[in-house]
Design a protein around this nucleic acid. Structure first.
Lengths: 192, 192
DNA sequence: CGTCTATTTGAATGTACTCAAAAGCGGTGG
DNA sequence: CCACCGCTTTTGAGTACATTCAAATAGACG
């Protein structure tokens, strides 16, 4: 259960055994069936979640009922409505399981206590946040620079592990195009 | 010179006078004239920069020579090619002054030393990175959800201070639309 | 096997784009 | 202080491309 998350952490900071135990002690396990919600818009968001197993997506539902997928998460990724998590505002996003999933949750309070007791964790979360920030910049640049076709190719090469686990409808949504357009793009890409 | 940056920091962490001095001691001052470059693609990026005074933009130049503006920065914002800064790869972006500007730079090495000596700073940079990450999520969502017209209105309301200091050409570029389209959008928005 | 969802295909529509040119504006030097 | 130059913004016309809507096909799942 804790093996992978501790391995991810060990890439950036070195922990003693008691520190590992203190950390795993504040994690809460969650398991969701496909199509169940981890977070629903309007709720307060207590936790951010590490994906032990499964696949989820975070999306915004606009006034017209249109879904807009902001993030996917598979094994070793973190997911939440980060805005709501960090500033205590009600969630604007839904986080829903695409596959049966197992998660580890950590609350903001527990995180603050952890940072106080073991400052190295401040470093760990700074580093993974920085990486997430840089990845988002790449995505913004892709919107500015690339056509739908190019964004699709980029998505498939950057996240092959995700692409094989989700529907084209979901990919299209993440890329900001219509599923019909993606279908035509796929046909075109296949013939080249 | 250091008053504003110390004030920004004091919002998130409390520093003693010697700590303030240690921090300001590692900052390097820079000043640029309008149209001068802070960073050019291909260079190694030693610093990230806090804007004391002025206005800058970070953009990517694609193979066709098209510019894509990823970020603006005015007083109290941080700017750099963050990817290059954090992983030591050559810059992919240009960072150019839109107005005569005064900056404070901090190198990655100095930052690591600072984190080691005064761990509170790890917290400060974690928090501002988290805020930047959340803002970028909002921008991605805006691409997914909104038309050019809506993105323009959102930009003007979110960043009025920036909008009044840059050209429409630059706004259009940041929003991912053509300047001609923005001109038509502005006319349409004015008549409503 | 049947139902529900995902994907593909087609045709019509609309929005944003390109290209070209004119008008407006700001800054510089005479 | 004015005239000129260059850059930004606007306007127009034609075009390309993604979208919408509708329907057929394929595929997944109980």
């Amino acid at each position: 259960m804790y093996k992978n998350i501790l391995y991810q952490i060990s890439k950036y900071i070195a922990l003693t055994s008691p520190e590992k135990e203190e950390f795993t002690g504040i994690l809460q396990g969650y398991s969701l069936k496909k199509k169940e919600f981890l977070i629903e818009a309007g709720q307060l968001v207590k936790n951010q979640y590490y994906v032990v197993k499964g696949c989820l997506n975070a999306y915004y539902l606009d006034e017209l009922g249109n879904k807009h997928i902001l993030q996917f998460a598979i094994e070793d990724w973190w997911i939440s409505d980060f805005q709501a998590f960090f500033d205590g505002s009600p969630a604007q996003l839904f986080v829903e399981a695409i596959e049966d999933s197992v998660l580890l949750g950590i609350s903001n309070d527990a995180l603050e206590t952890l940072f106080f007791r073991i400052p190295k964790f401040e470093r760990f979360f700074r580093i993974i946040t920085t990486k997430a920030f840089v990845s988002l910049r790449v995505r913004v640049l892709s919107f500015l620079q690339n056509s739908g076709t190019e964004r699709y190719i980029e998505f498939c090469t950057t996240y092959p592990k995700i692409e094989e686990r989700i529907t084209n409808y979901q990919i299209a949504n993440y890329l900001g195009i219509q599923p019909e357009s993606l279908s035509r793009i796929r046909k075109e890409v296949a013939n080249s």
